[in-house]
Amino acid sequence: MTQILLVEDNELNRDMLSRRLIRRGYEVLLAVDGAEGIAMAQEHHPDLILMDMSLPILDGWEATRALRADDATKTIPIIALTAHAMEGERSKALEAGCDDFDTKPVDLPRLLEKIEQRLAARR
């Protein structure tokens, strides 16, 4: 079963997104901050990571850069999630090493399409 790591500090966002992904047949791992996100990625090697960009301890940008710098985790596709919609956010995410980017509120069909795209590219 495909394993997705969701790194999100807001409880309600975590609850919502993880449940909707599980229903669609994915296995979901949860991390609540950037540091835990890195640790879980290193331990479990998920098939894909959904990364909220504004996280405590270590923010999404730093976490992404750290994952890209580590041989063990650098090939895992990362999709950035953010409620900010400023022009620069998208390019900032891609520069930090994210493969794709999506905004909140989450449009689930759109997000699922992006997830499947990234997973297919990997296979």
Binding site: N13, M16, K104, P105
Partner: peptide, 11 residues
């Protein structure tokens, strides 16, 4: 403003 809307729409 988007944060609670995200919750409202998502749930």
């Amino acid at each position: 403003l988007r944060t609670p809307l995200n919750h409202l729409i998502g749930y």
